[in-house]
Design a protein around this nucleic acid. Structure first.
Length: 274
DNA sequence: AAAGCACCCTGTACGC
DNA sequence: TGCGTACAGGGTGCTT
C-alpha cells in the first residue's frame, strides 16, 4: 500500500522519463478513477500539455503541466504507476493509459479501484487540507510537540490522520512508533518532550530509510516501482506484519491488535502500555 | 475533539 | 471442490 516513501519513489522514477514529455493521447478504461469522472473532458484537457515538474505532497503524486493545470494521482491501496515499454502482463486492472510524445506509455493500474486521478487548475484546493510534510525542514521536534499539545486522542490513529501529518500510512506509523518505543495507545498530549523528540526522529528516519530502499513491497505485491521492480524495505520492517514474531530489539513477541479499525503491530515490552 | 462504523473494492485465506 | 465469510486498508462521511 503506497505511503509517502512509495509515492516519493514513484516521483523519482518518473522524473527523468516524463519531464519535458507531452501527453498525446489518453485511454481511460475505467472512468471512475477520474475526479471528476468525465473521460472526454479529461482527455481533451490533458492532451497537448507538457510535464514541467514532478513532485509529491503527502501520498499525492503531482505533475505540473505547461497549460497551467496540475495532474494529481493518489494510489490509495493498490494503485500502481508503471512506465511500460512492453504491454502489461495482466491487463484486467489497467484503469488508464497515457501516451507520451516519445512513444512511451504510462499506465495507471489499480486492482481495488480506490485510487484517483485528478486534473485540476488549483492543486491547493486538495493539497492544502494536508498536514505538514514530515521530511520538510520546518517539521521539527518543537513543531511536533506543539501539534500534539491539544490532542487527547491516541497517538497511532492521529499519525494516520493526513490533516495532522501528511504521508504516514499503517506501515510507517507502526514502524515509527516501534523505533520511538512508544505504545500506539498512548494519549497524544501525554508524550514527554523526550518521547516527542524520539518520535520525530523515528518518523523521519524510517521514511528516509524506506525511500532509500525504494519503498515497501509486501507479499501482496500491491506496490511496484515505475519499472515494475518491488521495493526493498520489507526486510527492514520491525513491527508491521510481524505479529507473533520475536521483536528484533528485545526478543519479546510482537503483538497485533485492532486500533481505529486498523491492524496495529507493536512490541509490548519495548513499547509499554500507558 | 474523539471514537466507531459503513462504505468504496477485489483478491486471498480459511472454515465447513 | 466449492461455497460463504472475514480480512486487508486510505479516505470520506455519518453518528454517537
Amino acid at each position: 500500500m503506497p505511503e509517502l516513501p512509495e509515492v516519493e519513489t514513484l516521483a523519482r522514477g518518473l522524473r527523468s522519463s516524463l519531464v519535458d514529455r507531452t501527453f498525446v493521447a489518453v485511454d481511460v478504461r475505467w472512468e471512475g478513477c477520474l475526479s471528476p469522472a468525465d473521460r472526454g473532458a479529461f482527455a481533451r484537457r490533458l492532451t497537448g500539455q507538457t510535464v514541467l515538474a514532478i513532485g509529491r505532497r503527502g501520498k499525492w503524486l503531482r505533475m505540473t503541466l505547461s497549460g497551467g493545470d496540475t495532474l494529481l494521482l493518489h494510489p490509495r491501496m493498490t494503485g500502481q504507476v508503471l512506465l511500460s515499454e512492453e504491454p502489461i502482463e495482466d491487463e484486467r486492472h489497467v484503469r488508464a493509459v497515457f501516451s507520451l510524445d516519445d512513444g512511451s506509455k504510462l499506465a495507471f493500474v489499480d486492482m481495488r479501484k480506490f485510487g484517483r486521478v485528478c486534473l485540476v487548475e488549483d492543486p491547493d484546493i486538495i493539497l492544502s487540507e494536508l498536514g505538514p510534510e514530515p521530511l520538510a525542514d520546518d517539521f521539527t521536534a518543537a513543531s511536533l510537540q506543539a501539534m500534539l499539545a491539544a490532542r487527547r486522542g491516541r497517538i497511532k490513529p492521529l499519525l494516520l490522520d493526513q490533516r495532522f501529518l501528511a504521508g504516514l500510512g499503517n506501515i510507517y506509523a507502526d514502524e515509527a512508533l516501534w523505533r520511538a518505543r512508544i505504545n500506539p495507545l498512548r494519549t497524544a498530549n501525554t508524550l514527554t518532550a523526550k518521547e516527542v523528540r524520539r518520535l520525530h526522529r523515528a518518523i523521519r528516519s524510517v521514511l528516509r530509510a524506506a525511500i532509500a530502499r525504494g519503498g515497501t513491497t509486501l507479499s501482496d505485491e500491491t506496490f511496484r516501482q515505475v519499472d515494475g521492480e518491488p521495493g526493498g524495505f520489507s526486510i527492514e520492517l520491525a513491527a508491521y506484519g510481524r505479529g507473533g514474531e520475536a521483536c528484533s530489539r528485545c526478543r519479546s513477541t510482537i503483538e497485533r491488535i485492532r486500533l481505529g479499525g486498523r491492524s496495529t503491530h507493536y512490541c509490548p515490552s519495548c513499547q509499554p502500555e500507558p
